Structures are given as structure tokens and as C-alpha cells.
Amino acid sequence: MTATFTAVTYVAAAIAEIAGCFAMWSWLRSGASSLWLVPGVASLMLFAYLLTLVPVEAAGRAYAVYGGVYIAASLGWLWLVEGSRPDRWDLFGAGLCLVGAAVILWAPRGA
């Protein structure tokens, strides 16, 4: 599988997880209808499925790489959905996390 497929899969998983968690947040913290939980649970199930598609040999490594993507995607959600623009420290921290995720994902490993 290609690096593009891997990146797209991680980003899609992040969006699915954040949307599912936001549904729970909306219900418990913002007073939204409990019906928000239906698409929220479906979104979290999609998130879990998508992580199984990444071409990484160990689940823990797939989750570690995902962590960096999740942090960057969360800041995108903060800006696009919640209307709060990330500051330079948010962006710097997310950049560090993405560099770390890339090292974990693409580091040369022996057999």
C-alpha cells in the first residue's frame, strides 16, 4: 500500500474519532439530544475499523503513529468546527507530533 493510502486512512480515522467524541461531548456538555449518540457510536466504530487498514505490522505502532495524526486533526477540528484558531504553539506542537509519527511509521527496521 502506498504512503498516500496510509496518510488518507489515518486522517479519515482521526475525523471519525473526533466526530464520535464530539457527539458525546455535545450530548453531555452542550445539552444536545441523546440522538447524537447514534451517529457518534457509528463514527467511533468506523474509526476503529479504519485503523485496522493501515499497513503496519503491530497494533501498538499503528496507534502510536495515529496519535500524532489525531493531535493535528484535533487542531483542525478546533479551527473549522469550533471556530477557534490554533495559535503558533498549537501548530508547533502538532508539527513535532507529526514528525515523531513519521519516524515511528517509516523508520528502517531490521527483520
Rank of each mutant, 00 (worst) to 15 (best):
L46A: 14
L75N: 08
E82L: 14
M1W: 12
Y70P: 00
A12N: 10
R109E: 14
G76L: 11
L91S: 06
E57I: 00
L37F: 02
V56I: 14
Y63W: 09
A94T: 06
S74H: 07
V56T: 09
A48Y: 06
A7R: 09
I18W: 05
G40D: 03
P55V: 09
R61M: 10
S34D: 06
C97T: 01
G93Y: 04
A102M: 10
R109C: 05
A58F: 14
V81E: 12
W27E: 08
L80S: 14
R85Y: 08
P55S: 12
V69F: 03
Y70R: 15
A64S: 12
L105Y: 12
A48R: 03
V8I: 10
A3W: 12
P108N: 10
E17P: 04
R29T: 01
G93P: 01
A58D: 15
G67M: 08
A12G: 09
G76A: 13
W106E: 11
S74A: 12
A107F: 05
A32L: 05
T6D: 13
A62L: 05
V38L: 15
A3T: 11
M1D: 10
I18T: 15
S33R: 05
L78R: 11
Y63G: 01
T4Y: 11
I104P: 00
R29S: 07
V54T: 07
G83Q: 09
L53P: 01
L78M: 13
G100Q: 02
V69Y: 00
M45A: 10
V54D: 04
P55N: 15
L50P: 06
A14M: 12
L50Q: 08
P86M: 12
A13F: 06
W25A: 06
V41D: 03
Y70Q: 11
P39R: 06
